[in-house]
């Protein structure tokens, strides 16, 4: 996520062109090796075991390394070593810029300091950003004082995006609102001890980035079929969230809703803009009460 965040900043500041940034990402893609492949090449796992973990990842909210440890295929120490071999995303990004002779290391460091100042990030925040872990990065873009379960709901949604929709998503600064006008949307509420709603909304065809990736087909317009696919993605995320909090709360999933026609959401909304496959959608959540429309 840091390569996308800092990359878009460098373009905005005129330090890199769009084409140069795309070259950098292409360079990173060529050298970025999946953890499973490294584990197999290191002869720590078989290809079958790696494929099994990949399949499990599609249905469980867990990282490759954690699942491999649970299955007894890897030890925690082995996972740490493999992650080291895989490399840090920020360093890979910097390396790709320098190797392509687009910017010097000094220029990158200067821009990174500007990025930190412009966004008001602390030194600790910058460490979180450079970690490449969505669970450490996304909270930096969320409003303060979010209740624990709402934060977990949002982070789980982001992990769902990364696993099922687009591994290169990134977020913009989120905000709290009691009113949000949306165009196409899909949403699902959780009813019971603690009400919650998760919605995805987008303008024009933006929401198709989610629909296409989840359904594995190409929709031409944001019609009910496309939004049904978005609703199913939300359903999967909410299911995993419900599993996680069912020990604390008794909750039920309500049938998803969607509409291609615009409407107004009201409630205690947390709105997080998310860049997905070149489009911006909004992840809108409420906790403690449903989103009204």
């Amino acid at each position: 996520m840091i390569s996308r965040l800092f990359g878009s900043y460098l373009v905005k500041e005129g330090k890199l062109t769009e084409a140069q940034l795309e070259t950098v990402y292409e360079t990173m893609r060529k050298v970025r090796v999946k953890l499973g492949l490294i584990a197999v090449s290191e002869k720590l796992m078989t290809t079958e075991q790696s494929d099994e973990i990949n399949r499990l990842q599609a249905i469980m909210d867990k990282r490759f390394g954690d699942l491999a440890v649970e299955k007894g295929y890897l030890t925690a120490d082995q996972v740490t070593r493999l992650l080291g071999l895989q490399g840090n995303q920020y360093l890979s990004f910097v390396q790709a810029i320098v190797d392509n002779d687009f910017l010097s290391m000094d220029e990158i460091n200067k821009s990174l300091a500007d990025y930190q100042n412009d966004n008001g990030f602390t030194a600790t925040d910058m460490e979180d950003l450079k970690s490449g872990e969505s669970d450490r990065i996304v909270p930096l873009f969320l409003p303060q004082n979010i209740v624990e379960y709402q934060l977990e709901h949002i982070l789980m949604s982001i992990r769902g995006f990364i696993r099922l929709i687009d591994s290169d998503i990134y977020v913009e600064k989120g905000y709290i609102s009691d009113y949000e006008e949306v165009q196409s949307f899909a949403m699902q509420s959780l009813d019971g001890d603690n009400k919650a709603t998760m919605a995805i909304a987008g303008e024009g065809k933006n929401i198709l980035a989610v629909a296409d990736a989840f359904a594995g087909e190409t929709f031409e317009i944001a019609d009910e079929d496309a939004l049904d696919a978005v609703a199913e993605f939300i359903n999967c995320v909410n299911g995993m969230f419900a599993t996680k909090i069912n020990n604390a709360f008794d909750i039920d999933l309500v049938p998803p809703e969607y509409s291609p026609d615009g409407c107004k959401f009201t409630g205690k909304l947390i709105v997080l803009p998310v860049h997905v496959k070149g489009s911006v959608i909004k992840l809108i959540s409420s906790f403690g009460e449903f989103i009204n429309k």
Partner: peptide, 9 residues
């Protein structure tokens, strides 16, 4: 068929 999280059901 269910999304996860519906143990009671």
């Amino acid at each position: 068929v269910t999304a996860a999280g519906q143990q009671n059901k």
